[in-house]
Deep mutational scan, measured.
Amino acid sequence: NQASVVANQLIPISTHLTLVMMRSEVVTPVGIPAEDIPRLVSMQVNRAVPLGTTLMPDMVKGYA
């Protein structure tokens, strides 16, 4: 099972991601792979992401 990136807190819209905001967890459905966490740092979310939500490629500007 592959770990995905999950929000560690509420991430407001247009926030630049930091390591503190993300954790890796095995979830269904599978989202952005956990090994991409370093790549996600300083990218922006294009919507509010609630605590515990799996980050999907379409939620992060410039990821997909």
Rank of each mutant, 00 (worst) to 15 (best):
Q9E: 12
P57R: 07
E25G: 12
L51N: 13
V60T: 02
L10I: 11
P38A: 12
P33C: 15
N8I: 05
V20I: 11
S14E: 13
Y63N: 03
P12G: 07
V6T: 06
I13A: 15
R39C: 12
E25I: 06
I37H: 01
P29T: 05
I11S: 01
R47C: 08
T54E: 02
V30H: 11
T28G: 06
H16T: 14
A3M: 10
P38V: 09
I37R: 06
L10E: 15
P12K: 08
R39T: 14
N46S: 13
G31R: 02
V30E: 15
E35P: 07
P38Q: 13
T18S: 10
Y63W: 15
V49Y: 03
N46D: 10
M21N: 06
T53M: 11
M59T: 05
M56F: 09
I11A: 01
V5M: 02
V6R: 03
H16A: 15
M43Y: 07
R39F: 10
L55V: 07
Y63L: 05
N8D: 11
L19F: 14
T28V: 11
Q2H: 10
I13P: 11
Y63E: 04
S4R: 02
M21R: 00
N1K: 08
V41D: 03
V45D: 00
S42I: 03
T18R: 09
L17V: 01
L19R: 13
M56S: 06
A34V: 10
R39E: 06
I32W: 00
I37S: 03
P50F: 08
N1W: 14
V20N: 10
A7W: 03
M22T: 00
V5N: 02
Q2T: 13
A48M: 15
Q9P: 00
Q9T: 14
A48C: 15
M56K: 08
V49F: 03
P50A: 12
M59C: 06
S24M: 09
Q44A: 13
L17Y: 02
S14N: 15
P33N: 09
V30Q: 15
G52P: 01
M22V: 06
V30D: 11
M43N: 04
G31S: 02
V6S: 02
Q2Y: 15
P38H: 14
R23L: 04
L51W: 11
V27Q: 05
V45W: 02
I13T: 12
L10M: 13
I13V: 14
N1S: 15
V26P: 08
E35V: 12
L40G: 00
G31E: 01
Q2G: 15
V49C: 07
P57E: 07
A7H: 02
K61R: 15
S24K: 10
R47N: 07
K61I: 13
A7Q: 01
N1Q: 12
Q9A: 11
R23S: 06
N8T: 11
R47E: 08
P12A: 09
D58R: 08
L51P: 09
S4V: 02
V49S: 02
N1L: 13
S24T: 14
L17S: 00
V60Y: 02
R47S: 10
A48T: 15
S24Y: 10
S4L: 02
L51I: 12
S14W: 15
R23W: 04
V20M: 15
V41M: 08
V27K: 09
L40R: 01
T28F: 11
P57H: 09
L17D: 00
R23C: 05
P57M: 07
M43H: 07
S24A: 12
A48W: 10
L17E: 01
V5S: 03
G31Y: 02
A64P: 08
T53D: 13
V6K: 03
D36K: 09
Q44G: 04
L51M: 13
L10H: 12
L17A: 00
A48H: 10
E25M: 13
K61L: 14
V26T: 12
S42T: 12
M43D: 04
T53R: 13
